[in-house]
Design a binder for these strands. Structure first.
Ligand SMILES: [Mn+2]
Ligand SMILES: [Mn+2]
Ligand SMILES: [Mn+2]
Ligand SMILES: [Mn+2]
Lengths: 228, 228
DNA sequence: ACACAAAGTTAGGCTTACCTAATAATATTG
DNA sequence: CAATATTATTAGGTAAGCCTAACTTTGTGT
């Protein structure tokens, strides 16, 4: 049986490994992500290794075993289902759900997860647009790319975000940009890559490239020339 | 700020103190209730005392301070609201909700409690018939007495139970006795005080006095001669 | 290739929450 | 009331999960 305290490591390792850029998870990354010091993390990694949840060699970094990956996906499933439930059923904003979900997700009842998932309407994606794994660990796919890769004139729809922080999510909320909103890319400023978008009833905003790379969209016009 | 680990002590002390019979909570009772050893409990009591949540003198036993009582009632509120939510909204049986609620109740969000309470229809009593304190700590009252105190011919309704154990609750469930069910006291056997009741569509059962003292009822006929 | 920076590792220490065993205080009862 | 049983307390110990400081290994740039 997997301990609650293992779960946060597994989830973190999974998330770090999956981050598009990074290939292998390292101790210092994990420590940073979990807000712990490297020796603490190292100590725990040895245990996770004994439990056959990961393999770790300084050369190859931290890699989840098959079992470890399965467990990770299960934690992620629980986390995202709680976030979904808190948002859809309990009407919390998308910036509030993460912390609360972290507290609730360690309750140990598959049945409970099933029930709150059903109460939420069993969607495929959480309030941040992240895919919810099914019980076997399969993830629904969706074509998403950073808004930053857009060309002028592109029409797209927001399918997710790359960051969960309050600051970021509240910023988007203030701009009135939310999940499933349609954006029209009016202008791209070559100088710094910032993007002017129009949306809703005449709302518009100029988004810095730092923000635009964290908003995930998909084009709504066929044959759009946006990158990737 | 009250720590999660304080909460279980406060809740336990409150419950023990309130148990009709016992007046003062003692270390060994607490230890038994919490499934810990006396030295562990004593150690923690000293801390709770420093935190001004209880007073403890071997003579007077363990007594909650005003603040301690307020906090206890808040934990109990959270616990009972989670139980209610799990039962009413998530459709768990009354024997399943206690353990799950214990795991969920330490999530730290007043707002969450408010929302799930509203989703449950804001009832005054939990799935075991126990009163849910309001935010100020006030408990709704209800006239309840053990079924054991009945006289023959009494008609009464089940308003609660005195014990949360799986075994007990599942036993009642097998007998098809649940909250708000009407019971007719057909016969009382003087020999051992067991009670034959009829209910629902010709269901009937002979309840041992051990069971009958744990079922809480109120008479439905005016001027019933049942005790207390 | 060598010097410096970054990352990993070891050693040792702290706190919390638990425990057992032994002792002291208090109740119960013949 | 003395013997005994129960309850409370003290002393000392363990394991988990964190830490800092110091050292070692690895990677990088000139
Ligand atoms: Mn999250
Ligand atoms: Mn999410
Ligand atoms: Mn309960
Ligand atoms: Mn209850």
């Amino acid at each position: 049986m997997i301990k609650t305290s293992d779960e946060k490591y597994l989830k973190a390792i999974y998330q770090i490994s999956l981050a598009e850029n990074s290939s292998k998870a390292t101790i210092s990354e994990l420590a940073y992500y979990l807000d712990l010091k490297p020796p603490t993390v190292l100590e725990r990694l040895k245990i996770l290794q004994e439990e056959k949840l990961i393999t770790y060699k300084k050369a190859k970094g931290i890699v989840l075993t098959k079992i470890g990956e399965k467990e990770s996906l299960n934690v992620i499933r629980k986390h995202r289902i709680w976030e979904t439930f808190l948002h859809k059923v309990c009407k919390f904003s998308w910036s509030e759900v993460h912390e609360l979900a972290e507290q609730l997700q360690n309750a140990n009842s598959e049945k409970l997860i099933d029930r709150i998932y059903a109460l939420s309407g069993s969607p495929k994606f959480d309030p941040h647009g992240d895919p919810i794994p099914d019980k076997s660990g399969k993830l629904p796919t969706s074509e998403r790319r950073p808004l930053l890769n857009s060309v002028e004139g592109c029409k797209c729809v927001v399918l997710g975000v790359n960051e969960d922080s309050h600051d970021f999510l509240n910023y988007l909320t203030e701009l009135k940009i939310g999940l499933n909103d349609k954006l029209f890319v009016e202008k791209i400023f070559v100088f710094d890559g910032s993007i002017k978008v129009k949306y809703k009833n005449n709302e518009n905003a100029v988004l810095s490239s730092r923000v635009a790379e964290k908003i995930l969209v998909t084009c709504t016009k066929p044959n759009c020339t946006c990158k990737n």
